[in-house]
């Protein structure tokens, strides 16, 4: 029985089944904590714990699914090309906004965690917390973080931005929908972008583009910022 779990099809099937379950749950109750990724991850972890299956066994199949993250990042380049015309009139301001917000996001999390005396591996894993998961995972690998921790925290940030982002922004005096879109994409990547689309199509496009641009910026500067704050990794 136990070697059934050792075939790749186990990890693949349970992932698809959990996701299928999660999106149906979301259709039934549209509640932010019922984020499909969060629910899928929770369902799979509970299943693995109940049947005493370790992560490595699950990942025999799981890695066939995560393999597609690589080409998905390339696909974001296509999305970017398709949509960037729509921000043309605001392009310069938009780039400055995303760049500044993105950089402050990285520096503030690194600085805060250093002040709190958090272990270095966690700081390295969280530096890219604002960008889309596939890019964050690559950054994390590159800077000697732990990609699994990165993925979990990035999803948490996305859910936070999705649930509270527009509310916080409005409280802070930001009412412009395009500004809300750009902010959500910069700080809360794809999950934030889903929320930006609820504000309107153009805010959604702004958010998607902000996500791509902040992904590139963060990928380029994070290794250097970490080196600056923490020194070389071994």
């Amino acid at each position: 029985m136990n070697d059934l779990f050792n075939v790749p099809v186990f990890g693949v099937s349970i992932t698809l089944a959990a996701y299928f379950f999660a999106i149906n749950l979301r259709k039934k109750w549209n509640y932010v904590l019922l984020n499909p990724v969060l629910i899928s991850v929770a369902v799979i972890i509970i299943f693995l714990l109940i049947f005493n299956i370790d992560f490595e066994t699950y990942n025999i199949g799981g890695k066939y699914i995560s393999f597609f993250l690589g080409p998905s990042v390339v696909a974001l380049g296509v999305f970017f090309y398709e949509k960037y015309e729509e921000v043309k009139e605001n392009l310069k301001v938009f780039l400055v906004a995303v760049f500044t917000g993105g950089i402050f996001g990285i520096i503030s999390i690194i600085g805060f965690l250093i002040l709190m005396n958090i272990p270095e591996v966690l700081i390295r894993s969280l530096a890219a917390k604002s960008v889309t998961t596939p890019i964050a995972i690559e950054i994390s690998k590159l800077v000697a973080g732990t990609p699994e921790i990165t993925a979990g925290m990035v999803i948490a940030v996305g859910i936070f931005g999705n649930a509270f982002g527009p509310y916080i922004l409005k409280k802070l005096g930001i009412s412009n929908k395009l500004a809300i879109g750009a902010a959500l994409g910069t700080a809360a990547h794809g999950i934030g972008t889903a929320r930006a689309f609820e504000e309107g199509k153009l805010p959604g496009v702004y958010s998607g583009l902000a996500m791509c641009i902040n992904g590139i910026i963060t990928a380029l500067v994070t290794p250097y910022l970490l080196q600056l704050f923490l020194g070389n990794f071994t």
Partner: peptide
């Protein structure tokens, strides 16, 4: 840290564009 840094990032991007 995540909440503080995310709010900072949201605010800065938003205010510049607005």
């Amino acid at each position: 840290g995540l909440v503080f840094s995310s709010i900072l990032s949201l605010y800065i991007s938003g205010i510049i564009l607005q």
